[in-house]
Design a protein around this nucleic acid. Structure first.
Lengths: 249, 249
DNA sequence: CGACCAATTGAGCCATCTCAATATGTGTGG
DNA sequence: CCACACATATTGAGATGGCTCAATTGGTCG
């Protein structure tokens, strides 16, 4: 059966089902909303994979505010693993109920030099690129474009694992979550969302975001999807990668 | 002779000079201030190492503003290399005159499973942690703490490569650079710096930042250096890493 | 000296914040 | 099916941190 990670790796760089065999998982577990999946400062020797639900990377500030620095969607890892043990400098929390599995370190080690390892590395590069995009947006864009940009990002990432199409996706987050991720107050997020709705860029019903005209939304948000490395655009596909790797030997 | 990278790797995880032998460099080159070292969208099959000077990752926004998403100090790589070829989704620009060398991909490939590879990976993890810290700060802290935090970060990172001590370091950036990195206007950066000076947290003379009481500055900035993985604190040292790696075989 | 870049200062404005109240929705026990 | 509790969303009103525009000063270099 397909899990969101293999789905993602296949779509991302044409990995085939057989090549995903190297992906071995531990025991699946569940986390309630608001529960920590990994605690800040924890020493871990493995990563966890989100199978369903939405989680986040966050840091608690001294005054009690919460800075969300990443959203984790199905198919995402809580942390990138390479060294044997590592101390986290952030916490991973479930924003909605989540299904999670442990991914043993061996996955990475065994994957060395295979197309699978390239694919895993690519997914890490994408996570970094997303962080960079957040930085640019939060620091330079007004609130309405920031929120719109985040929605575009969600749509792309969810589509990659089959949870969105061109015109809608379910987003069971609360406005406070968006606020903590964008460095805005809940009140302002609320007003900005209303504004974006009024202008006709989106509608929201039942925790589902409906997009009338995707290209119009992306234009408004100044969203350039190339950083998500989709459809062979950004990073070269694992195919191409390995061909050149072979030649190099 | 020591270059800032080997210095960094030695201090970061006790790597010894001999182990750095795997680091091979191409032809050194120079970049003037304001010159691009790598262009946005460029396809690269290598990384570059900053030997001296300060560069940055940046993105140009549609309205012409510049979002700086990272500062590159001596000993830093312009990009992290693993796949054969990759298309950058950011630009790398020199903020001061820079001396730079190409680092061939072979460096990473040959380093596989050695302590050197762990060290290189660690340096990548630190770069990511820095980005995360920027996100938390920019999104949740007022301007004065943001700027103070950045100064603390500079001090730590520069100290790692021998360019700062506990009380001062040279910082040949202009206020516009800080502004673009913090999502503030130059005017406000100027006022914030004045304020931080008035309060006695720092002095500036000759592009050199003088810190009276480091712990006071770090407390003000809510700066927790653990994310920089210094002195064996965060990630376990390469020593420990490889011991466990051996055992795992 | 003139040109230019960086730093500084002043003044007015507005995007976003805070505080606080109200509304809406949802689950639980009776 | 009601009633209460609690979480989330919405609205209003006033405050402010940081912005923009524009002018001035100071430093550096040919």
């Amino acid at each position: 059966m397909h899990n969101p990670l293999t789905l993602k790796l296949e779509r991302l760089c044409g990995l085939e089902a057989a090549e995903c065999a190297g992906l071995s998982f531990g025991e699946p577990s569940f986390a309630d909303a608001h529960e920590d999946i990994l605690a800040d400062g924890q020493v871990v020797s493995h990563a966890k994979l989100i199978l369903s639900g939405i989680a986040c990377h966050y840091k608690l500030m001294r005054d009690g505010r919460r800075a969300i620095t990443a959203f984790l969607l199905p198919g995402d890892f809580t942390n990138h693993q390479m060294p044997e043990r590592q101390r986290l400098n952030f916490a991973v929390g479930a924003l909605t109920p989540c299904r999670v599995v442990d991914v043993p370190l061996a996955t990475w080690r065994n994957a060395a030099n295979s197309r699978l390892s390239h694919a895993l590395f690519l997914s890490m590069m994408i996570d970094i690129a997303i962080q960079r995009a957040w930085l640019a947006n939060i620091s330079q864009q007004p609130a309405d474009k920031r929120v719109a940009h985040l929605l575009c990002e969600f749509r792309h990432r969810l589509a990659l694992v089959g949870l969105a199409d061109g015109s809608s996706f379910r987003l069971p987050l609360i406005q406070q979550d968006l606020a903590d991720a964008q460095g805005l107050s809940v009140v302002h997020v609320n007003r900005v969302l209303q504004h974006i709705k009024e202008v006709g860029l989106i509608r929201i019903r039942d925790r589902t975001v409906l997009i009338g005209d995707l290209s119009r939304l992306e234009a408004f948000a100044e969203f350039d999807p190339s950083y998500l490395h989709l459809e062979g655009g950004g990073l070269l596909s694992a195919n191409a990668l390995c061909e050149t790797a072979e030649r190099a030997k």
